[in-house]
Simulated assay, not measured.
Amino acid sequence: MAIKNQQFNKYLTPLGHILFWMLLLFLPHMVRISSTGVRFSDSVQNRLIIGNLFLIAFFYINVYIFYPLIYKRKGLILYVVVLAVTVFLFVRTSFMIERTYFRVKPTEIENLTNKKPAPPNQEKARKRRHKEGYFYFLLFPYIFIIGVSISYRIIRDSSRAEKSLKEKENENLKTELSFLRSQVSPHFMFNVLNTLVAMARKKSDLMEPSLIKLSHMMRYMLYESNDEKISLDKEVEYLRNYIDLQLLRFGDDLLLELDIADSYDDYEIEPMLLISFIENAFKHGIGMVDDPFIKIKLAVNQATNWLEFKVENSVSPQDSARDKASGIGLNNMRRRLELLYKDRYKLETVLNGTTFVSKLNIQLK
């Protein structure tokens, strides 16, 4: 969809230019016919075409040469002088071409002005006034084009500056997200390796299946979590592998309630976003707790496309004295939520006595 929009915008600007100049070329004819019902003569039409071609050339010269190269770099005074000289030369050249090759006959002047020819003794003075008046008549459209061209250039520059700023912000966002993701992996590995160390000390037969589970998770982290979005099914599979790995360690010592559907078709989510809840639940929900428990629930409301994720776990009374590094995962996740799902998520974390509850709602579509 983004590629199609870029291709459409690529042709939209030239199309707008063509339509604008077509309107400029044909507007005098439409006004003439609608007001009098008579079209211009060939010589008058040719004069209008020549004049408009000079206006079009002047427009693009001002937009792409005078304004950016003279006004922006040399200043206003030189810019005004160059404009004045250029307009004078364009008007004089246009006037000379029209007078030389497309001279208007007296009868055509009479038809245009609805006035009868002046007496012979006044004809010379009338021609001089007509010549001066026609020169100023040619001058006014250039003043209009100066205003239009400057406005167009200012809007164009502002639009490009805004686009460049957004692209820079997006690059900064990607860089920050990449950094946050890179923090997830070491944090995760720190917790899992502690689990494997405990198994190795016990010389547990579960060491091999644990390593297999870990290899599946590493594959996900290395090859799939670099995408901007990942299938929710794959994210759930990753969570299940992590939970299974932890259960190999704790076994019956932990009461686990898992309420996760088998399939979440057509939904995508930021990779490795939900794991922080479950990591913290296993880290702080088991240990100096008499009856440790963890409850995990994940569901998607198909009517509203909101993901509902809830984790409850037991905590020890001394949990307030936990190490400073224990909150890295959740702080990381909070920042990623703010960057990726701003105004489209709700997060609540509550400590109720010896039970810690985390609730996360995300609008996926």
Rank of each mutant, 00 (worst) to 15 (best):
K10G: 05
K10N: 04
T13E: 14
G16M: 09
F20A: 14
F20G: 04
L27I: 13
H29E: 11
L48M: 03
N52C: 06
V63N: 06
K72T: 01
G75L: 01
I77C: 04
V81T: 02
V82P: 00
L83Y: 05
T86Y: 10
V87E: 00
E98T: 11
R103G: 04
T107C: 03
T113K: 02
K115M: 04
N121Q: 12
K131I: 11
V148F: 09
S149V: 00
R156W: 11
N170S: 08
T175M: 06
N191R: 05
V192Y: 08
L196F: 10
A200M: 13
K203S: 13
H216M: 09
M218P: 01
N226Y: 08
K229G: 03
K234V: 00
Y238H: 12
Y242I: 01
Q246G: 00
D253K: 07
L254Y: 02
L255D: 12
S263L: 03
S263C: 06
L273Q: 04
L274Q: 08
L274A: 04
I278Y: 08
F282P: 00
I286H: 06
S314D: 06
A321T: 15
K324E: 15
I328Q: 03
I328K: 03
G353R: 11
G353P: 13
S358G: 09
S358M: 15
Q363T: 09
